[in-house]
């Protein structure tokens, strides 16, 4: 399973749009196996929270299946972008 970090831009039902530190946007669907529930997503959107998503490809859609969402500490916000800038 793959991992990606980024900001939750917006959510709808069990779907959310993540903007990675590189500025790419990807659509994720929260898998039914994930411990997180869809109703926990809107607060992440309101905070524009930085999260780490553990995910898998899904060949049937242009999007990914999110299996776990870890909220990253707030102070790390922007750090990713800085790292990106340094590279």
């Amino acid at each position: 399973m793959k991992r990606v970090e980024g900001t939750v831009l917006f959510t709808q039902e069990s779907r959310f749009m993540l903007e990675t530190d590189a500025g790419e946007r990807h659509l994720f669907i929260l898998s039914h196996k994930a411990s997180a529930e869809a109703q926990q997503l809107p607060p992440l959107q309101h905070r524009q929270a930085r999260v780490r998503v553990t995910y898998d490809n899904d060949p049937a859609i242009i999007g990914y299946a999110a299996h776990a969402i870890d909220v990253l500490p707030e102070q790390r916000r922007g750090q990713g972008a800085r790292q990106w800038a340094r590279q």
């Binding site: 709808q12 779907r15 049937a60 859609i61 999007g63």
Partner: peptide, 10 residues
């Protein structure tokens, strides 16, 4: 767009 639905029926 509004509902953040992925493309399917590819």
């Amino acid at each position: 767009e509004w509902n953040n639905l992925p493309a399917d029926n590819l």
